[in-house]
């Protein structure tokens, strides 16, 4: 991990710095600690402390009112026999992969589409329209989508019926409910990803394109050999953020389908929430969270390792 984290540093930097005197280094170190202190302090009190507390919770039976009771490995053993958890993790996997893929491909394509010569007004309108959903509350807009996606007398099914498509059971069928949750997430987050990629695209120096053009590169070649390699740091960031975000999605399923029908669109965080704050089984909720934490950490580490193969820093 150590090497992969610092892989962002260019080779020249590390060699140059190796020759520094000890005094300069300690001044730099002091400055470093001072700079991270405010963030670290907040993080320690409101994140790390609670995390440590959860690590103890795993071995407890705790309903948040009565005193906690030590139960050893009971919660961890229960994980093994929890059949619902398997289905819910499958849903979560489908959601995470589906949403991350669609959001990033869509976001990049939109960013490249918008980042082209066009009248300023048009660009402004396109960007505003696509970014608009990001401005809204997930829970509120899920409510709007619920109205739109209703099977009977729903707006979308009515529009589909006009082009001869049979009513789709968007929210009520096991196959469609999870897809609806993914589609809502993509609708809601696409603008966010577009802006991220747009920032990346506009960070690519124009001079590189000019140089390539002088070499006679056509549009496809400009995309392939200039844009795509140079967008990789942004893509890396965007994918990590999407994966982690998607793994923790809650409001979407909570409002749109309530996890139903059955467990068909229940995602892991919704399940954890229900175990913790509906059943008040905090210990087991913490154990479930641990599994999610482990999976997300593993995914991210994998990303960092793989990043060395496809991410280019200048």
């Amino acid at each position: 991990m150590q090497t992969s984290v610092s892989s962002g540093m260019t080779q020249t930097q590390s060699t140059k710095r190796r020759g520094r005197s000890a005094g300069l280094q300690s001044r730099e170190a002091l400055a470093g600690y001072a700079f991270i202190l405010p963030a670290l302090l907040t993080l320690t009190i409101f994140l790390i402390l609670p995390i440590l507390a959860s690590a103890v919770l795993i071995f407890m039976e705790y309903d948040i009112l009565s005193p906690a009771k030590w139960v050893g490995l009971a919660n961890l053993k229960r994980l093994v026999s929890d059949n619902r958890m398997l289905l819910i993790y499958r849903n979560t996997l489908v959601f995470v992969v589906g949403a991350t893929f669609l959001n990033n491909i869509g976001g990049l394509m939109l960013a490249m589409g918008v980042n082209r010569a066009m009248p300023g007004v048009l660009r402004y309108l396109l960007r505003t329209a696509i970014f608009f959903p990001v401005l809204t509350t997930t829970a509120s807009l899920a409510l709007v989508w619920q109205f739109l996606l209703t099977q009977d007398r729903g707006v979308i099914n009515y529009l589909l019926s006009q082009i001869g498509v049979d009513p789709v059971p968007w929210l009520s069928s096991s196959t469609w409910a999870l897809r609806s949750v993914i589609l809502y997430d993509v609708w809601k987050s696409l603008g966010f990803l577009m802006v991220l990629y747009l920032a990346g695209l506009q960070g690519i120096p124009e001079s590189l394109y000019e140089a390539a053009r002088i070499d006679g590169a056509n549009r496809w070649q400009l995309t392939r050999y200039v844009t795509l390699p140079l967008i990789t740091p942004t893509a890396f960031f965007a994918i990590v953020i999407s994966l982690i975000g998607a793994g923790q999605v809650f409001d979407n399923a909570f409002v749109l389908t309530g996890g139903g029908p059955g467990d068909a669109s229940r995602l892991i965080v919704l399940y954890i929430y229900e175990v913790g704050f509906k059943r008040f089984e905090m210990g087991y909720a913490a154990a479930l969270s641990l599994t999610l934490f482990a999976i997300l950490i593993a995914l991210t580490m994998l990303q960092f390792v793989m990043a060395r193969r496809w991410v280019h820093y200048e």
């Binding site: 994140l47 959860s54 919770l57 982690i244 929430y273 969270s289 934490f293």
Partner: peptide, 16 residues
């Protein structure tokens, strides 16, 4: 530590 804390689901730490 920062990176890892980013991946902590909020439900884990909601109660603490």
């Amino acid at each position: 530590v920062f990176l890892a804390s980013m991946m902590v689901p909020w439900t884990v730490i909601m109660v603490p």
